[in-house]
Structure formats: structure tokens, C-alpha cells
Design a protein around this nucleic acid. Structure first.
Ligand code: SF4
Ligand code: SF4
Lengths: 129, 129
DNA sequence: AGTAAATAATACCAAGAGGTGTCATTTATG
DNA sequence: CATAAATGACACCTCTTGGTATTATTTACT
């Protein structure tokens, strides 16, 4: 029952990385996020380890707790976060949800949908955390 | 794991109504759809009764089987179908998925997201089955 | 050293979407 | 009228996402 939505996990990842980017020198703990970002604490903790594994976050030093961005915030495009958390941004999806187009020629929605899709993707590519 | 997707039921409804619109005089049976439109038969049957109840389809005459559009195909905008099958197209959704914006001022994504959202909605409004 | 706190790992749980099976009813058709 | 086919209604199932609980481990701090 949704349309222009990311999955929850993507929403949360975007919130976290965007929040960290505001002060990317600081070392953050799970506690720093949960209240401000409206993410259930246990789920947040799970998510943080996921983000570490896909190399968006890391523990800054050996034997030190907490998280930082794994690289310069300017180089983390939103689209990378979206893809890393599993949302499939497909360049051109069928408006009717067909896996395989049953038509021989593009239907009336083909170009309109493509245009929207392109705009969306380029926005996600041109913005960073 | 999805982004620019409708729900399955919306996809199916779009396929059905779009298919009927090609020859809106004909009276259709469930059988006419399932093979061509790639919808599981039992689910299709359930969906057809739903579409009848929300007044997108109707049984053309009393005591006659089958389905037709309930009105002129030109007057059935895609956005109406999308809404009727439960997908919530909200005029302006938060990019980060917040229910309530935690910021005082619009964030960097506000206007970009709004623009995409508007384009999407106007496309769905300006196209019909 | 000893305790508190942060994290990792793992299993489990809940709700909803998508899909199937069954049976009863109703109409078409011979 | 009798039979086949289409439909409606309803229960049930499965899989994924989102979320919780538990336990163990590791580091910070006194
Ligand atoms: S042409 Fe139309 S039906 Fe075919 S894949 Fe493109 S959007 Fe889908
Ligand atoms: S300003 Fe940004 S964070 Fe606030 S509701 Fe709009 S998109 Fe969401």
C-alpha cells in the first residue's frame, strides 16, 4: 500500500548517514541516533552493523566503539545508500509491473514513465549525505 | 525491496482496465484476462470483484455475466485506479520517511522531492486507461 | 581488577501482501 | 429441465519486512 516510498531500512539509513554528515568528525554511538531519528533502538543497532558491513560506516579505530562515515560525506551519493540497503532502483521499470513486456512496441506510458524515472535517479545521484 | 513500484494489486488493476479500454464495447470474462495479462487466475477473480465494488467495473446488465468499464475510458485517469486499489499517493512525502518532520525548516531534499512528486502525480492525472 | 556500557550475533515474533482451495450460487446453453 | 461454466464468498496459506529478546563479548572507566 505504498508508492513513492523507500523501504523502512532505506529511510533509516538515509536518516543516519545524513545525520552523521552534519558533523562528520564526531564519533557516534547508537544512543546518539535513536531519539532524534525516530528509529527503534534494537532495530537501529542491527542496522548499524549492516551499514558497517556494506562499508558505509566503520569503527574509526581498532578497539574503539562508535561509528563514523567510512569516507568523505560529499562522496556518498544518496543513490548509493538506497542501493546498499536493498532498494532496487531499476533504470526503467514497466509502468504496469510486467517483468517481460508483452507488447511489440512501447505503450503509451513508456516515455512518460522513463522521464520520471530519469529525473528521480539523477536527483539521487546528484545529492549526497 | 522496492521503490518506484506500485503494489501488485495496483499493477494488475492497471493492466485490466487498460486492456478493457482497448475495446470498451466488448463484455469481458475473467478468462479473457488471465493469460494475456499475466495475473494468477484465482487472484484475478478476487480482484475483479474488488474492482466492481469500487465502481470501476460493473456487470453490464442484470443477469448477465462478465465485466465492462463503468464509464467512459477517457474519464478514468490512472491516478484514480491507483488510489482505488489502495496505493497512497501523497502529494508531498518526506524523503526520509518521517511522519512528522523533525526539522524547523525544509531540508535540502524538500524542493527536489516535491518536484519529482508533482511530475509523477500530474502524469497520473493526465493519462487515462 | 572489576563493573558498567556498547556492540555482535542469533533466534524469534507479528503483521500484511500476495496467492490458493473449496464450495455454493447463478446464468448460459443444449 | 439438466449440465457446464462463470462468479462470489470465505478460509487458509506463505513469504517478506519490520521489529524484539537474549546472550555473549569487548572496551571504558573507576
Ligand atoms: S512498453 Fe509499456 S507495457 Fe511494455 S514494458 Fe514498457 S511500460 Fe511496460
Ligand atoms: S523538510 Fe526534509 S525531513 Fe522535513 S519533512 Fe520535508 S523532506 Fe522530510
Amino acid at each position: 500500500m505504498s508508492f513513492m516510498n523507500f523501504s523502512k531500512i532505506t529511510d533509516y539509513a538515509l536518516r543516519i548517514l545524513s545525520h552523521i554528515a552534519k558533523d562528520s568528525e564526531k564519533v557516534y554511538w547508537a544512543n546518539d541516533f535513536c531519539c532524534k531519528l525516530d528509529i527503534p533502538f534494537r532495530y537501529l543497532r542491527k542496522l548499524l552493523t549492516i551499514l558497517s558491513k556494506v562499508d558505509l560506516l566503520y569503527n574509526p579505530q581498532e578497539k574503539v566503539r562508535g561509528y563514523q562515515l567510512s569516507r568523505n560525506p560529499n562522496s556518498i551519493q544518496f543513490i548509493y545508500i538506497v542501493k546498499a540497503t536493498g532498494d532496487d532502483i531499476i533504470e526503467q521499470k514497466c509502468f504496469f509491473g510486467y517483468q517481460q513486456c508483452p507488447l511489440n512496441n512501447p505503450c503509451g506510458m513508456y516515455y512518460k514513465w522513463k522521464k520520471i524515472s530519469k529525473g528521480l535517479i539523477s536527483t539521487l545521484e546528484s545529492t549526497n549525505s
